[in-house]
Design a protein around this nucleic acid. Structure first.
Length: 798
RNA sequence: GCCGUUGUGGCGGAACUGGCAGACGCAAGGGACUUAAAAUCCCUCGGCAGCAAUGCCGUACGGGUUCGAUUCCCGUCAACGGCACCA
C-alpha cells in the first residue's frame, strides 16, 4: 500500500525544526557522543548522491545513540571558500559571497529534505568573518611559534587556476582540482612547517581507531626512513653531505650525484671546466615540470662536474661527481652517494655513463642487474664489514662514521612543508603586514578578523599576484610596529585552512573570545566518530591532525588527537559502473529521488546498496525494492492489535534487535536492513502493539519519517525520537531446536532437527539412524566422529 | 615498480572465530486478481544430468594444510585505489 511520503516527510521535518528535536544539550554531565561528517563545499551543482551516503550512515548512528539516551552532537556547516565559487563569480559578475549564500541555501534545503538530524543551531561557515577570525588567529599562533614562514622557492603552479598548489594538491604532477599539468615556478610563499610534526603525526596514528587503509596511506605519505647522513670531502675543499638508507654499501659508492639545483655548484663555478655544459643542464632541468622530471621510465641523464671530485670517507678513494635530475633537491641533502651494484637507479645511470660497479653484498649477479634486496646477503669488498649481514654492517658503519665524525644516524621524511598561500581572492586574508624596516609584522589579535575587502574584479593576474594586490587602499597601511608605510600580504589561505579546525568550532560556535570554550572542548572533544572520503586522507585529514596537535601543544585544545575514530565510505557510481559525472551523463540527482520515492526510501536504498566501504553502482530498479518494503511497513500499520510479543516470534525479535544494534555500530547497514526485511517476512501480515513498538524503533534511524508517523498513528505515547532503544535478551536469541547437517567425509548426506541442548551422543545416535547416512556407512569403518554443537556432524570413514 | 584493497548466481550483495555457500533485495519466468494494464499477492530461480527421488560440479585460476576452506598458507592472473627516481 502506497503512503503519502511527501506530506509525512514535510510534516516531521518541520516539527523537528520547530521543536529543536536534535539540538545537542549543553549539560556536560550526560554521556556524550560526537558524530561528524565532512562538511560540504557548497558548489553550484547542489548535493551529489554521494553526500547522503556518508551523512545517512552517521545519521543512523546518531539517531540510535540518542534513543540509547546519549547526548549526541551531529553538526553541519559549509566549507565555502574556494575556486569554483570564485570562477563562477568572475564569469557572471556576482560577488562570491552572494554565490555562496545562494548555494548554501540550496544545499541546506536539500539536506533538510533528507531528514538528517543535524543540530542546525551550530551551523558554521568558513567564509563568515566571525569564523575566519579564528582561522586567522590560529595562523598567528603558528607564526609566533615559527611554524609559518615565508620563503622563496620552486612551487607547483597550476597555469589554469593561476595559483600555487600544496604538494598534496599536486600529486602525480597534475592539479588536484582542474587536472591541468602543474609547472614549476619560483615564488615567495607562505609555508607551514608540517614537517616539524612528521614524527608526531606518525606516532599519533598508533593511538587512534582509524581504518587501516587510512593509517597506511598517511604513513606512506609521511614516508619515514632511517639511514645515515655522511660527509664526503671534495677536492674543492667543501664538504658534500649526503643522505643514504644504505650506509652499509658505502664501500660500493663509485660516484656521487647532486641535484641540478644544489647550492654548491654555484660555489664551484670557477673550478668547473665544463661550466657551460653544467649550466645548460641546469636550465633544462629548471624548465621541466615535476611531471616530466619524475617520469620513471625515461633514460637517466646527467653531466659530470669536471674539476671537482669527492673522497669516499671509508677508503679514501677519489670518485667523480655528477649532476642529474634523478636526484631531488628537496629530499635529504639534495645529493647522494651512488652505489650502482645495489640500487636500480644508480645502476641505470652507471650503465649510461660507463661507471664502475662494485659488488659489496653477495647474493645477486651485478653484471646483469642491481641487487637491491639484501636481506640475506653477506658483505664483501668492504674491508672491516666483510662477512657481516646487512643489518650488522649498518650498525657497525654508523658507529664507525660517528666515531670519525664524518657521519651519523639520521631519520628522513618524504613529507614536505605545506605551501599555504594562494593568489586568489576568495579565501581568508593572511593577517600579515610587510614593512620595509620591520619585515613581516603579524596583526595584533585584537585587530582580527582581517576582513576580506570587496573588490571590483576577482580576475587572477597573469603576474601571479592575488587580485587583492590591486586594492591599494586596503593594501597600503602603516606598519603596526614603526608606523612607516607598509603593505598587507595579498595572498590568501588555501581552502584547507577553514576545514582544518571546524570540528572544534562546532562545540561552541558562537564564542567571541576563543576558538571555543575550554569546558565545551573538554566535554565534546575528541570527535568520537568521523566519516569521510578517502580522497581527503593525505589532505584535510592530515592537515587537521597537524593543526590540532599544534593547538594541543600551545594549550589551546585539551586532547592531542582530534578524531578518535575514522571510517570511510565507498563512492556511489553511475548505473554503468563508472564514476558519476556530467560528461558521462550518468549523474543521479538526489532531488529527483526524494521527489519520486521520498527521503526514507532514498536513505534506505543508499544504505542497502552494498558494503559501506566499497564503491557501488546506482541502480534505479533496486531502489524500488526499498520503496516496496516501506509500503509494506505502512500496510502493516493497519493491522496493529493490542498485545505482547507473540511467543513464537520472541526469538525472531530478540535476534533482530541484536543484529540491528550490532550492525549499526559496525556500519553494516545493509545487513541490518536485510534483518528488518526478514523479520517483516516472518510476521505473516500482522503485528501486536509490543511488536510494533520494537519494529518501529529499530527502523527509525534508517527511515525516521514514516516510523514517527506510524508511531503516532498506532496511538503510542509521545514521539518516537524520545522512545528507548530496545534491548535484547541473549537467552532469547537462542532457538530451542537446531538443524544439524550430517556429513560423511565432508559431504552433506542428511539434516536433522535436534534439541539445542542435546548431548553429543544423542546427536551421533540420531545421525547414524538416518537412512541416507546408514546406507553410506554400511561396510565402512568410522575412523573419526566430529561433532560441532549446534552446527554439524562429520563422519570420517574408510 | 612499491604499498594497499578486492575477485562469490543474470545484477547489488550475505556467510560469526575454519563448520549447511548464495541471506536480503533487484531482474527474469510462471500463476492469481483484473475487461485490460499498472499495482499487489503466491510460486520458481548457481550449473550439468535426470520424469523424479537424487547425483555430480561450483566462491578468479593452480597448488597446499585440514575430518572439513569463500574463510588459512604458497604461487599465478585480473580489477580498483594510493604513491611513484624519496637514495
Amino acid at each position: 500500500m502506497e503512503y503519502n511520503f511527501k506530506e509525512i516527510e514535510k510534516k516531521w521535518q518541520e516539527k523537528w525544526d520547530k521543536e529543536g528535536t536534535f539540538v545537542a544539550k549543553d549539560d556536560y554531565t550526560l554521556p556524550k557522543f560526537y558524530a561528524l561528517v565532512e562538511f560540504p563545499y557548497p558548489s553550484g551543482q547542489g548535493l551529489h548522491v554521494g553526500h547522503p551516503r556518508s551523512y545517512t550512515a552517521l545519521d543512523i548512528v546518531a539517531r540510535k545513540k540518542r534513543l540509547e539516551g546519549i547526548n549526541v552532537l551531529y553538526p553541519m556547516g559549509w566549507d565555502a571558500f574556494g575556486l569554483p565559487t570564485e570562477n563562477f563569480a568572475i564569469k557572471n559578475h556576482v560577488h562570491p559571497r552572494i554565490v555562496t549564500e545562494k548555494n548554501v541555501a540550496h544545499f541546506k534545503e536539500q539536506l533538510k529534505s533528507l531528514g538528517f538530524s543535524f543540530d542546525w543551531t551550530r551551523e558554521v561557515n568558513t567564509t563568515d568573518p566571525s569564523y575566519y577570525k579564528w582561522t586567522q588567529w590560529i595562523f598567528l599562533q603558528l607564526y609566533k611559534k615559527g611554524l609559518a614562514y615565508k620563503k622563496e622557492m620552486a612551487v607547483n603552479w597550476c597555469p589554469s587556476c593561476k595559483c600555487v598548489l600544496a604538494n598534496e594538491e599536486a600529486a602525480g604532477g597534475v592539479c588536484e582540482r582542474c587536472g591541468s599539468e602543474v609547472v614549476r615556478k619560483v615564488k615567495s610563499q607562505w609555508m607551514l612547517k608540517i614537517t616539524e610534526y612528521a614524527e608526531k603525526l606518525l606516532d599519533g596514528l598508533n593511538g587512534v581507531n582509524f581504518i587501516e587503509r587510512v593509517k597506511t596511506q598517511q604513513r606512506n605519505w609521511i614516508g619515514r626512513s632511517t639511514g645515515a647522513q655522511v660527509t664526503f670531502k671534495t677536492s674543492a675543499g667543501d664538504d658534500l653531505e649526503i643522505y643514504t638508507t644504505r650506509p652499509d654499501t658505502l664501500f660500493g659508492a663509485t660516484y656521487m650525484v647532486m641535484a641540478p639545483e644544489h647550492a654548491l655548484i654555484e660555489k664551484w663555478a670557477d673550478r668547473l671546466t665544463n661550466l657551460d655544459e653544467v649550466r645548460a643542464y641546469q636550465a633544462e632541468a629548471a624548465r621541466k615540470s615535476d611531471f616530466e622530471r619524475t617520469e620513471v621510465a625515461k633514460d637517466k641523464t646527467g653531466v659530470k662536474l669536471v674539476g671537482v671530485t669527492a673522497i669516499n670517507p671509508v677508503n679514501g678513494r677519489e670518485i667523480p661527481i655528477f649532476i642529474s635530475d634523478y636526484v631531488l633537491a628537496s629530499y635529504g641533502t639534495g645529493a647522494i652517494m651512488a652505489v650502482p651494484a645495489h640500487d636500480e637507479r644508480d645502476y641505470a645511470f652507471a650503465k649510461v655513463f660507463d661507471l664502475p660497479i662494485i659488488e659489496v653484498v653477495k647474493g645477486g649477479d651485478v653484471t646483469k642487474e642491481a641487487y637491491v634486496d639484501c636481506s640475506e646477503g653477506e658483505m664483501v669488498n668492504s674491508d672491516f664489514l666483510n662477512g657481516l649481514t646487512v643489518p650488522e654492517a649498518k650498525k657497525k658503519i654508523i658507529a664507525f662514521l660517528t666515531e670519525k665524525g664524518v657521519g651519523y644516524e639520521k631519520v628522513n621524511f618524504k613529507l614536505r612543508d605545506w605551501v599555504f598561500s594562494r593568489q586568489r581572492y576568495w579565501g581568508e586574508p593572511i593577517p600579515i603586514i610587510h614593512c620595509p624596516h620591520c619585515g613581516a609584522v603579524p596583526l595584533e589579535e585584537k585587530d582580527l578578523p582581517l576582513v576580506l575587502p570587496d573588490v571590483d574584479s576577482y580576475e587572477p593576474t597573469e603576474t601571479g599576484e592575488s587580485p587583492l594586490a590591486k586594492m591599494t587602499d586596503w593594501v597600503n597601511v602603516p606598519c603596526p610596529k614603526c608606523g612607516a608605510p607598509a603593505q598587507r600580504e595579498t595572498d590568501t589561505m588555501p581552502q584547507w585552512a577553514g576545514s582544518s579546525w571546524y570540528f572544534i568550532r562546532y562545540v561552541d560556535p558562537h564564542n567571541d573570545h576563543a576558538i571555543a570554550s575550554e569546558e565545551a572542548m573538554k566535554y565534546w572533544l575528541p570527535v568520537d566518530w568521523y566519516n569521510g572520503g578517502m580522497e581527503h586522507t593525505t589532505l584535510h585529514l592530515l592537515y587537521s591532525r597537524f593543526w590540532h596537535q599544534f593547538l594541543y601543544d600551545i594549550g589551546a585544545v585539551p586532547c592531542p588527537e582530534p578524531y578518535a575514530k575514522r571510517t570511510s565510505h565507498g563512492m556511489i557510481l553511475g548505473e554503468n559502473g563508472e564514476k558519476m559525472s556530467k560528461s558521462r551523463g550518468n549523474v543521479v540527482n538526489p532531488d529527483d529521488i526524494v521527489n519520486e520515492y521520498g527521503a526514507d526510501t532514498m536513505r534506505l536504498y543508499e544504505m542497502f546498496i552494498g558494503d559501506f566501504e566499497k564503491a557501488a553502482p546506482w541502480s534505479s530498479s533496486s531502489i524500488k525494492g526499498c520503496k516496496r518494503f516501506l509500503d509494506r511497513v505502512w500496510a502493516l500499520g493497519e493491522t496493529v492489535k493490542t498485545g505482547e510479543i507473540r511467543p513464537e516470534l520472541e526469538g525472531a525479535f530478540h535476534k533482530t534487535i541484536k543484529k540491528v544494534t550490532e550492525d549499526i555500530e559496525s556500519l553494516k547497514m545493509n545487513t541490518a536492513i536485510a534483518a528488518l526485511m526478514t523479520l517483516m517476512n516472518n510476521l505473516d501480515g500482522s503485528v501486536t502493539t509490543e511488536e510494533w513498538k520494537i519494529y518501529l524503533t529499530l527502523l527509525n534511524p534508517f527511515a525516521p519519517h514514516i516510523t514517527e508517523e506510524l508511531w503516532v498513528r498506532a496511538g503510542f505515547a509521545g514521539e518516537l525520537n524520545a522512545a528507548p532503544w530496545p534491548v535484547f535478551d541473549p537467552a532469547k536469541c537462542k532457538d530451542d531446536t537446531v538443524e544439524i547437517a550430517i556429513q560423511i567425509l565432508g559431504k552433506i548426506r542428511a539434516r536433522i532437527n535436534v534439541a539445542a541442548n542435546a548431548s553429543k551422543d544423542e546427536v551421533l545416535a540420531l545421525a547414524k539412524a538416518q537412512p541416507a547416512v546408514a546406507s553410506q556407512l554400511e561396510g565402512k569403518t568410522i575412523v573419526k566422529e566430529i561433532v560441532v554443537p549446534g552446527k554439524l556432524v562429520n563422519f570420517v570413514v574408510r
